[in-house]
Nucleic acid binder design. Structure first.
Length: 462
RNA sequence: GGCCCCGUCGUCUAGCGGUCAGGAUCCAUGGUUUUCAUCCAUGUUACAGGAGUUCGAUUCUCCUCGGGGUCACCA
């Protein structure tokens, strides 16, 4: 069984990068009928917050990514870690180091002065004497001092590290007894049954250390997939300005989970030339072996296109329901179908769609000067009045076609071009140029409102 | 700086020794449209550089350059 996990540290909200690795992990587990686990890495009491952990769970809910089983909180597992530390100690695979922080800093400085690699010198590795007074020891693991450590990675291939290049006897438990990151990751992944680790490639250089721990503990080493980073437009790490915003901000901006997920799944992963993936297709087709090796740049052009695509292809009922989040209540509007059919092709986001709806539903309070100037010619008022008269007399006025034929009648009778009535009428109705077909607008707002807007525009023009 | 990873259109990517280097997005132009948008069509733009290996390299190897990651009693 494939067991994957997402293991954020709750120091902030969930951002796009984290979400993507979570999505990959989720997809891979689901595809294999396995499990997708969530673990909150909250061992750093100073920097973590409960709110952040809750925010992450909330974001998952919005996106429809559901984790299996209970959420694991590392902060509640101290005794478990202590047990394994103890085990390594008694097996002689780890030892207490009484070097003080000051001594460590000093060592580091001399190494730097000599242009040597900064590393612990192993002075307590085989220490048997009397420990110095007043120093709470840290626990260090006996790491291999030579040899090759192989990381078999499903996206990068096999990577070889030389122990002497990268390893020293690193700390697995601090002076206060709390375990460090690399240690708890290995222990938890093993205990949770995680056998396929999908994570950012910023963890690649941690992996040899974790392998050392797995092996010391006698645990099976999981498979690794290190997915490349997402960079901003300058090729640097994502910052709040570019992509590292809270995932929930995308909801506010009017993106649907579907669009966001489709966007992210194609960032670093591909399945031939396919661009559009339903959630089901993602699950069916995703394979971490197809993840790209190189970093990608965060750019929302595709997101916008995807978002527009999904909005265009969504049912009006579904749209009306989603629109409520953005303050537009259309669910029982009798012209909902006509309105949304006309509008959903011109919105990139739900938020935009909501604005578009409001623009039509609300009586214009002002008129774009340029549009007014361009649309209103000397005969416009006369034409508008004539149209108003037709409107008043008409018996059946419900559908756009009915309004349209009224306009057609008018231009035929007055022997004028369509633009003669279309332009000023459009400005009267919306206060500006652009927007959906005039007949659609009139059908949606109805005869009385149309008459009102025509009268308003004539007054404003005078 | 040490170690590690990466390098195909502006961007997301396909490619897995022989392709006019494909798709998408963006942009531009044209068409459809009473406007705008949609939609359709067309077009511009890429294998970082240099050595090898090979009959033949975008593809394999090495070097250079460039970018990134990581080197904590953070995660």
């Amino acid at each position: 069984m494939v067991v994957t996990r997402f293991a954020p540290s709750p120091t902030g909200y969930l951002h796009i990068g984290g979400l993507r690795t979570a999505l990959f992990s989720y997809l891979w587990a689901r595809k294999n009928g396995g499990k997708f686990l969530l673990r909150i890495e909250d061992t750093d009491k100073a920097r973590n917050s409960q709110e952040a952990a809750e925010a992450i769970v909330k974001a998952f809910e919005w996106l429809g990514l559901e984790a299996d089983g209970e959420i694991t909180y590392q902060s509640q597992r101290d005794d478990i870690y202590a047990k394994y530390i103890e085990q390594l100690l008694s097996e002689g695979k780890a030892y207490k180091c009484y070097m003080s922080k000051e001594e460590l800093a000093e060592l580091r400085e001399t190494q730097m002065a000599n242009k040597e690699r900064t590393m612990y010198d192993g002075r307590y590795r085989d220490f048997t004497g009397t420990p110095p007074e007043g120093v709470e020891p840290v626990i260090r693991i006996k790491a291999p001092q030579s040899g090759e450590i192989l990381v078999k990675d499903g996206v990068k291939g096999t990577i070889s590290f030389q122990a002497e290049d990268i390893l020293d006897d690193f700390i697995i438990a601090r002076a206060d007894g709390s375990p460090t990151y690399n240690f708890v990751v290995a222990v938890d992944d093993y205990l949770m049954g995680v056998n396929e680790v999908i994570r950012g490639d910023d963890h690649l250089s941690n992996t040899p250390k974790q392998i050392v721990i797995y092996e010391a503990l006698g645990f099976d080493v999981p498979s690794f997939y290190h997915v490349p980073m997402i960079h901003n437009s300058t090729g640097k790490k994502l910052s709040k300005r570019d992509g590292a915003t809270d995932v929930m901000a995308y909801k506010e901006m009017g993106y649907t989970p579907q669009a966001l997920l489709n966007f992210l799944v194609r960032l670093g992963w591909s399945h031939g030339d396919q661009e559009i993936f339903s959630f089901e297709e993602m699950i069916e087709l995703f394979n971490p072996n197809d993840i790209n090796k190189s970093a990608s740049i965060y750019n929302t052009e595709k997101l916008d296109w995807l978002s527009a695509h999904y909005i265009k292809n969504m049912s009006n009922d579904a749209l009306a329901e989603l629109l409520e989040e953005y303050g537009v209540i259309l669910t029982s509007h009798d012209k909902k179908e006509i309105l949304l059919d006309a509008l959903k092709e011109r919105a990139k986001t739900l938020k935009e769609l909501a604005e578009l709806v409001n623009e039509i539903v609300a009586t214009p309070s002002s008129y774009d000067e340029k549009a007014m100037h361009k649309a209103f010619k000397e005969d416009s008022v006369e034409i508008l009045n004539a149209f108003g008269a037709k409107l008043t007399k008409a018996t059946e006025l419900h559908l756009p076609v009915e309004y349209h034929s009224l306009m057609q009648e008018l231009v035929d009778e007055m022997d004028i071009g369509f633009g003669k009535i279309g332009m000023p009428l459009r400005v009267a109705l919306l206060g500006k140029m652009g927007g959906p077909n005039i007949d659609v607008i009139m059908a949606v707002i109805g005869r009385d409102e149309t008459l009102l807007r025509i009268a308003n525009a004539i007054t404003a023009n005078a």
